[in-house]
Simulated scan of single mutants.
Amino acid sequence: MYLLLLTLHSWGRWAVLLGLLWGLGQAYRGWWGGRSFTPLDDTLRHGVATLAHVQLTLGYGLYFVSPVTGAFHLRDAVHAPGALFFGLQHVLAMTVAVVVLTIGAALAKRRTPDAAKFRTMALWFSATLLLVFLAIPWPFLPWAPRPYFRL
């Protein structure tokens, strides 16, 4: 169970990142180019939020079965920065990122002029992407290195 969740969660990050980048590209092009908000744009807005929710759900499942977070105690976190990252920082930052994305997607849906929809989507998705980039356990991080792809 643990290895399956770990692999799905590891590969799911790329789907979320690609979806966010695609959504951002569409949002900024629509905002700056004066395009109309099409059903494809709306599907993309909703699809990226859905992907992020699935990824968060996989992450929560992983959080509760992982030996890394199972052994996490806040009082020992000073001596184990990797445990602190996965036990607190990663899950908290990613939860906040998905909340920000959800708020942005909901606000964009409710805006009436198309430029306002694109602007809202662009700004909130940008904030989400920043949070996600900061919270991913990249291979170059000294406290929590993880591979780009798990096999």
Results as ranks from 00 to 15, higher is better:
Val68Asp: 10
Gly23Tyr: 11
Ala116Tyr: 01
His79Leu: 07
Gly59Phe: 00
Pro39Ile: 01
Leu130Gly: 12
Phe118Arg: 01
Phe64Glu: 11
Pro145Asp: 07
Leu88Pro: 00
Val100Lys: 05
Pro142Ile: 07
Val96His: 02
Leu40Thr: 10
Ala49Tyr: 01
His90Ile: 02
Tyr28Trp: 15
Leu58Trp: 08
Leu131Thr: 04
Gly82Lys: 08
Pro67Ala: 06
Pro142Gly: 09
Gly87Ser: 03
Ser66Leu: 10
Thr57Pro: 03
Trp124Asn: 01
His73Arg: 15
Thr50Arg: 14
Ala15Pro: 04
Leu4Ser: 13
Val54Gly: 01
Leu4Gly: 14
Ser126Pro: 08
Leu40Asn: 10
Ala108Trp: 00
Tyr2Ala: 08
Gly87Asn: 03
Phe125Arg: 13
Leu58Gly: 01
Phe125Asn: 08
Gly47Phe: 05
Leu141Phe: 14
Ala116Glu: 14
Leu58Arg: 03
Thr95Gln: 09
Thr120Val: 09
Met121Gln: 15
Asp41Cys: 07
Leu8Gly: 02
Ala83Asn: 12
Thr38Trp: 03
Phe64Gln: 13
Ala105Leu: 09
Tyr2Trp: 11
Ala97Glu: 06
Trp32Arg: 15
Lys109Ser: 13
Arg13Phe: 12
Leu123Pro: 00
Gly61His: 04
Leu40His: 14
Gly61Cys: 01
Pro39Gly: 00
Pro39Asn: 04
Thr57Tyr: 02
Leu74Arg: 11
Ala71Asn: 13
His79Ser: 12
Met121Pro: 01
Ala135Met: 06
Ala71Glu: 13
Gly59Thr: 09
Ala135Tyr: 04
Ala93Arg: 06
Leu134Gln: 10
Trp32Ala: 09
Trp138Met: 08
Ile103Lys: 07
Ala97Ser: 10
Ser10Arg: 00
Leu3Val: 15
Tyr148Asn: 11
Gly12Trp: 08
Val91Thr: 13
